[in-house]
């Protein structure tokens, strides 16, 4: 039997909202340590990896590892029947379940839904723990704003790191521009900007994907950008007390 109860069901809705434009059908993996999901985006350029640890749930039980194939679109239809303040419980009864049950619980109402599961042939990629040469932490809303602004000028956005901070730049047909974000250690953790730079990087990415990733900014006030030259970048949103959502994107390799 598998059972996972979110005290804050709104959080689960935000996670689904964050990935719905990137992935269509996904395998949700559950085991004794928690729930995870790994999927390539529909254009096979980005990788989405979600980890939710069992300790973050109000109740968690998983006796045997399970793979649950879900349509994100259908999952969203079911989640629309829940309130933002509901507690949400996911449950399966059988060893090889064909449906995933949802219970939405508020003060005044309990709703039950069953979502039909699918069998999906998706391979898991092995993403190693990598030491990145530049790691930047900054407010997620600031990153969203910069991507939106610079994305108006060109489809590619450059990122350059140094000990002083991080610089975003664009060059387009209409002109060019840059935004530098300075390091600060304000007392408000959500406004902090930190750069750990062992080796500076200068990379270029499709801003369209950043704009899709930024839907996840509702999950965390800070975003972590981990980069090494000519390697995929990782954009990470820490989901407080539960885990994280990591988004991997390939850099533009040739100029």
């Amino acid at each position: 039997m598998f059972e996972a109860k979110f005290e804050d069901g709104g959080l689960f809705k935000k996670i689904v909202e964050a990935i719905k434009e990137l992935v269509k059908n996904v395998n949700l993996e559950a085991n004794g340590t928690g729930i995870s999901l790994q999927a390539m985006d529909t254009s096979h350029v980005a990788l989405v990896a979600l980890q939710l640890n069992e300790k973050g749930f109000k109740k968690y039980r998983c006796e045997k590892s399970l793979t649950m194939g879900l349509s994100i679109e259908n999952l969203q239809k079911i989640l629309k029947c829940s309130g933002n303040d509901d507690q949400i419980t996911l449950r399966t009864q059988d060893e090889e379940p064909t449906t995933l049950s949802f219970t939405f619980e508020s003060k005044n109402r309990i709703s039950e839904f069953q979502l039909n599961l699918m069998s999906l042939d998706q391979e898991q990629l092995g993403v190693p723990d990598t030491e990145y040469s530049s790691v930047v932490r900054m407010p997620s809303n600031e990153f969203t704003k910069i991507c939106r602004e610079l994305g108006n000028i060109n489809e590619a956005i450059g990122i350059e790191t140094s000990k002083e901070g991080i610089k975003f730049y664009v060059k387009g047909d209409i002109g060019e521009g840059q935004v530098s974000v300075k390091i600060n250690d304000t007392e408000k953790p959500e406004e902090r900007v930190e750069c750990e730079v062992d080796e500076p990087v200068n990379l270029s990415f499709a801003v369209r994907y950043f704009n899709l990733f930024n839907k996840a900014s509702a999950l965390s006030s800070q975003v972590i950008l981990s980069m090494s030259q000519d390697q995929p970048l990782v954009i990470e949103y820490i989901i407080e007390e539960m885990g994280s959502l990591k988004l991997y994107l390939a850099p533009k390799i040739n100029d």
Binding site: A46, L125, V127
Partner: peptide
């Protein structure tokens, strides 16, 4: 703009 399947190939090759 980008190599399709770059990420897939990159992480498989690790």
């Amino acid at each position: 703009f980008f190599d399709q399947d770059y990420i897939q190939q990159y992480y498989q090759a690790q």
